[in-house]
Design a binder for these strands. Structure first.
Length: 180
DNA sequence: ATTGGGATCGTCT
DNA sequence: GACGATCCCAATA
């Protein structure tokens, strides 16, 4: 299983996102396969980077291949991977995982055996991703968190739809789902 | 199976 | 001071 390198992420989010379907997100000894993802770019009114950098969104404007975590609705964390070039605020939001490793721990963290990682807030709770992890380098070979390729190819014809939970930028079909 | 309301707080205006 | 790139539960049908 090979860690995905910086070069892969240093492209535009709408290009990177569908190629991340099938890749494995690993946090410590917990792992899940990415099955749903969304892209956000700087010229996109739905993106946190749309109004320029802030302390919160700084990772989106830094080098690609870093984690961007934000807190929302007073109770949920969401995990993104930064993409594009330095200075360009882009990221992909990981929306759902198929649990692979450490499922028992995920079930315990979630407090239920079903629906443990089928939403952006849920997967963060299951994997223990929080605000303190924002900005971490996913391409650091020594890091405990990263994205890996285990030989599973991205789907050739993923479903692409409107993104979820936004009120602007709905014309961009930048949500991709691995077909079952 | 689907829908609607409430929870809760970090971040930016 | 308002508002979320959401989730869960309870109530419908």
């Amino acid at each position: 299983m090979r860690r995905v390198g910086r070069r892969f992420f240093a492209r535009d989010a709408p290009t990177v996102a569908p190629e991340l379907l099938g890749k494995v997100l690993m946090v410590g000894n917990l792992a899940g396969r990415i099955i749903e993802i969304e892209a956000y770019t700087q010229d996109d009114p739905a993106s946190h980077s749309f109004r320029g950098p802030t302390p919160r969104t700084a990772p989106m404007f830094g080098a690609a291949g870093h984690l961007y975590v934000y807190f929302t609705y007073g109770m949920h964390h969401c995990a993104n991977v930064t993409t594009g070039q330095v200075g360009d605020g882009q990221a992909v939001l990981i929306r759902a995982l198929e649990p692979l490793r450490g499922i028992d721990v995920m079930i315990e963290r979630r407090g239920r055996a079903r629906n443990i990682s089928d939403g952006p807030g849920k997967l963060c709770q299951a994997l223990g991703v929080g605000l303190s992890m924002t900005g971490l380098d996913l391409c650091d070979r020594a890091g405990q968190i990263g994205i890996f390729d285990d030989g599973v190819a991205p789907p050739s014809d993923p479903t692409s739809t409107e993104r979820i939970g936004i009120r602007v930028g709905t014309d961009r079909l930048w949500r991709w789902i691995a077909s079952p």
